[in-house]
């Protein structure tokens, strides 16, 4: 505890429980292709869960920057791990997790879309099918993980840190 009353020293509160909980949520939600349809919502949920668990575990309320930091780190861990698992399965078994579901979802959209957009979608589906794993894909995935975790984690962490305000202020 800090010397000042009502202030909790965050050095005494390891991030591990929050990171683990949020990371698991982000991992599960980003491994399956629902993330394509739900935009950054899976990562927002992962980040929100990480900061919430941290707040409840140590009974603290957090400053925005710290809440966002936990959430972004949790999303990086979870989304990074799911990307590695996805790539390993792709390389080892030539199978892309949830890919067929995603393609059938896209085909459904392409069939209901007006001709120019529908044709573009069919073209992009073909490109997706022909895509092979290479260094370019890997580099793109690294940047995507950083970007998506930054945006989703920041939103989720900020929301959680302002919603749960019981307990001493952690600094």
């Amino acid at each position: 505890m800090s010397d000042e009353p009502g202030i909790v020293n965050l050095d005494d509160c390891p991030m591990k429980p929050g990171l683990a909980a949020g990371g698991v949520v982000a991992f599960v939600l980003t491994l399956f292709p629902m993330s394509y349809a739900l935009c950054c919502l899976p990562l927002v949920l992962g980040g929100f869960f990480a900061t919430t668990i941290f707040c409840f575990k140590y009974k603290v309320r957090l400053e925005l920057k710290y809440g966002m930091k936990i959430a972004i780190l949790a999303c990086l861990l979870g989304f990074g791990a799911s990307t590695v698992v996805y790539d390993l399965v792709w390389l080892a078994f030539d199978y892309r997790i949830g890919f067929e579901w995603y393609v059938s979802f896209l085909i459904g959209l392409a069939e209901s879309a007006p001709p120019p957009s529908g044709d573009q979608l069919f073209e992009s589906i073909e490109l997706l099918r022909e895509q092979s794993f290479g260094i370019g894909t890997f580099v793109q995935q690294i940047f995507t993980v950083i970007l998506a975790s930054g945006i989703g984690g920041a939103i989720g962490g900020a929301l959680a840190s302002v919603l749960f305000k019981k307990g001493a202020l952690g600094q």
Partner: peptide
């Protein structure tokens, strides 16, 4: 193309 693929996990990016 690289930029579009960067955001591919953040959004469905359907042109319509």
């Amino acid at each position: 193309e690289f930029g579009h693929s960067l955001f591919s996990h953040l959004c469905h990016q359907k042109s319509e």
